[in-house]
Design a protein around this nucleic acid. Structure first.
Lengths: 134, 134
DNA sequence: TTAATTGTAATATTTTTTATTACAGTACAA
DNA sequence: TTGTACTGTAATAAAAAATATTACAATTAA
């Protein structure tokens, strides 16, 4: 259970409400995590084309498109890793008829559940989320 | 991202397909994790009244009710801990207007998403899941 | 009364997450 | 043209979480 989604949401909310480029140090101060961790997440959000950056003095980060066209599902997808329902580290015993198959069935289940989550997350966009902060 | 849900599902599937009490050591062998970890999860599943145990020689574990009346949502709920969408370790900066409020809004969002997951998980019961292993 | 088992505590190890340090590269602005 | 405020990223350290191990008391069937 890591903090990547909350951090990404915090970043996106800050950028949504800002009317100019924000620096990673400023955002790290609001989120209260190490600036390098924020920069890594910013880097990831750039890779997923949700934000853009400007280097050099007075540089920083800004949304790459209107907040109304950024769904929370796309933010989730940019930070997601592994299974929503978790994952056992070891392979189950292949000599056991249950062990042999269960990973496939659990993976199918995980996909279904993740889809349900994404559907729900897809009903809200960043602009709507930010309205809550008025 | 821990393995508690997969392990609990593996346990429940084994008990569902067994026609007698199963020992924690046998289950640990199928799951391929440490027996003590399995016993801890068994202990938790007992606490949530999904299974029962019998001590002593020829002891073990069995389902406490028909597999058709055990929904996957109840299994999920018995192992769940913390937020589905994750959680940042540090408190955001309370001096920041976003930082001050974001945890509440993220918690609301988390609740919504968890509910969507539970709704979906609630559409399947253990018996149906076990049918896949035929 | 022995052997197989549950139940649980204490501790160790491994893995993951987060923090820190360091510094090269970029661009604004005096 | 030089200093300063940034981005970007690598390497390492520290902290936290997950899993494994050891140990043993309590229970019960045979």
């Amino acid at each position: 259970m890591n903090g990547r989604f909350p951090i990404a949401m915090h970043i996106m909310t800050l950028l949504c409400t800002a009317d100019d480029y924000l620096s990673s140090d400023y955002m790290a101060g609001s989120i209260n995590v190490n600036p390098v961790l924020v920069r890594k997440e910013l880097s990831n959000l750039i890779k997923h084309q949700l934000i853009t950056s400007r280097e050099g003095k007075n540089g920083g980060y800004t949304l790459s498109k209107p907040a109304t066209s950024i769904s929370l599902a796309s933010i989730y997808q940019s930070v997601k890793q592994g299974n929503v329902l978790g994952q056992a580290k070891n392979q189950p015993n292949p000599a056991c008829p249950i062990g042999k198959q269960i990973n496939n069935h659990l993976k199918d289940l995980d996909n279904e559940i993740e889809q349900a989550m994404l559907n729900k997350l897809g009903t809200t966009n960043l602009a709507a989320f930010c309205k809550k902060f008025d």
